[in-house]
Design a protein around this nucleic acid. Structure first.
Lengths: 222, 222
DNA sequence: CCCCATTCTTGAACGTGTTCAAAAAGAAGT
DNA sequence: ACTTCTTTTTGAACACGTTCAAGAATGGGG
C-alpha cells in the first residue's frame, strides 16, 4: 500500500467527517442524517459506515476536535494569568467559547455521550485519550497557579474540576439565555468562590472533614 | 360517556403502560419495541400511540411510578429516624431500592431524560408534578431532622440535595459493581459527611463563603 | 330503531440508523 | 498481461419510532 493510496482513503474519511461536523453545526444533529451526510459528501451511505461505525462515532470525532481546540485556547489564555480564580475562569470560558457554535446540538450530544456504551462517553475507554488531554488542561490550570493551591488538594483537584466542567457543560446545554449568558455568569461567580473555598481547607475543622471527603472519593474510585 | 366506557378506555391505557413497564424491567429498553409492546398487549401499534404520544412518554409513566414508590418508602423509613445523616441515608437508599430492578435500563432512561425536549426531563414542565413530589421528600428529610439543620440552609438544602440525588442516580447508572454496591458505599459515606459539612456553616469564615455561594445559586436560578 | 358525533382502533407507510452481500478498484507477484 | 488478494464502494434491505387516513365501536338524541 503506497502512501498516495493511504492518502486517498484518509481523504475520504476526512471528507465524510468534515461534512458531518459542518452539518452538525449548521443544521443540527437530527437533521444531519447519515443519508444527507453521504449525499453532501458525494459518497454512498455504506461508504460512510466503512469509516465510521455509527453516527455516534461521528459525534466522537467532534468531541475530539472540540477538546483539542479547548486545549489550545486554554493553554494560550493560561500563559497570561497566575491567580487560581483567574486561571479557572480562563479555562472554563475557553471551553464555552469552543462549544458555542454547537449549542443547539448540545442536548443531543449529551444524550449521546451519556450512554455508557457510547464511544463518546467521556468515561469510556474509547475516550481515554481525549479525557486525559482534557484532564491535562485542568492539571495545568491548578499547577501553574500562584499563590499555589494547598498541597493536600493539588492531586485530586484537577479531576474534581474536570467533573465540575462536565456539570457546567450540562448547565450550558440547558441554558437558553441569549448567548448562554447565565452560564458565563455562573463561571464568573463560581471561580472566585472555589478559590476562596480552597483557602478554607487550612481551617482545622474544615480540614478534617475535607480529609474524609477525599478518602471517600478515593475509596469509591478504586 | 358512562363510567363503564371510561373504565374500558382507561383499561386499555393501563394495559399498554403495564405491559411496557414490565418489558422495560424484563428485557430492557431497546428490546422493548413499540411493536413488541403492542403485540404483547394485544393491541395495534397505532392504538398504543393513541394513549402515549411517544416511547419517551412511556418512560415518563415509569418515572412517575418510580417517584411515587420512592415517596412512599422514604416517608415510611423517615418515621423512625431523627438524625440528619440517618434521614438522608434512608431517603437515598429508598430511591436506590426502587430503581434497582431497572438498573440495566438506567442508562437509556437517563439518555432519554436528559434531552431538554423530552417529557421525562426532570426539569421540564411535564415533570413538574413528579419533581415537586420528589422535592417534597427532601423537604421532609431536612425539616424533620433533630437536631435541626442551620436555619440559613434550610430553604435551599432540599433543592440542593435533590440535585445531588440526580448526581447519585447518574453515578448509579455507571456503577457496574455487583448490586451497585459502590453507590451504596457512596451514600453511606457521603451522608454523614454532608451532615458534618453543615455543622461547619457555623464557622464565621465558612459562613461568609457559604453566603456568597447561596447568593450565586439564587441569582443564577432567577 | 336509526342517525350522528365522539371515541377508539387499525395497519400500511414514511424516514431513520444500520447491515451486508456483492461489486469495483487497487496493489502486488509472476 | 493475467491472476490473486486486499481495500474500498455500492445500494438494496431490515427493524425501528412515528404518523395518519380510514374504519369500527360506542352512546346519546330523535
Amino acid at each position: 500500500m503506497g502512501s498516495a493510496v493511504a492518502a486517498k482513503s484518509e481523504q475520504t474519511r476526512q471528507l465524510v467527517a468534515d461534512t458531518a461536523l459542518r452539518m452538525f453545526r449548521d443544521i443540527g444533529f437530527e437533521k444531519t442524517t447519515m443519508r444527507a451526510i453521504a449525499a453532501e459528501a458525494g459518497v454512498s451511505v455504506g461508504n460512510a459506515y466503512y469509516y465510521f461505525a455509527s453516527k455516534d462515532d461521528l459525534v466522537h470525532e467532534l468531541y475530539i476536535q472540540v477538546q483539542a481546540e479547548h486545549a489550545a485556547r486554554a493553554s494560550e489564555a493560561l500563559e497570561e494569568t497566575t491567580g487560581f480564580a483567574e486561571r479557572l475562569k480562563a479555562t472554563l470560558h475557553a471551553g464555552l467559547d469552543v462549544m458555542a457554535p454547537y449549542h443547539r446540538f448540545g442536548a443531543d450530544f449529551v444524550a449521546t455521550a451519556i450512554r455508557p456504551t457510547s464511544p463518546v462517553n467521556p468515561f469510556s475507554a474509547d475516550s481515554t485519550p481525549a479525557r486525559e488531554a482534557s484532564l491535562d488542561i485542568f492539571r495545568n490550570t491548578v499547577d501553574g497557579a500562584r499563590p499555589a493551591v494547598p498541597k493536600k488538594l493539588r492531586g485530586d483537584l484537577p479531576e474534581l474540576l474536570w467533573l465540575c466542567y462536565m456539570g457546567i457543560t450540562l448547565f450550558w446545554v440547558y441554558d437558553t439565555s441569549e448567548g448562554q449568558r447565565r452560564t458565563r455568569k455562573l463561571v464568573d461567580g463560581a471561580a472566585p468562590l472555589v478559590a476562596r473555598g480552597l483557602a478554607l481547607a487550612r481551617i482545622p475543622g474544615v480540614s478534617k472533614v475535607l480529609d474524609d471527603v477525599l478518602d471517600l472519593s478515593r475509596s469509591i474510585r478504586s
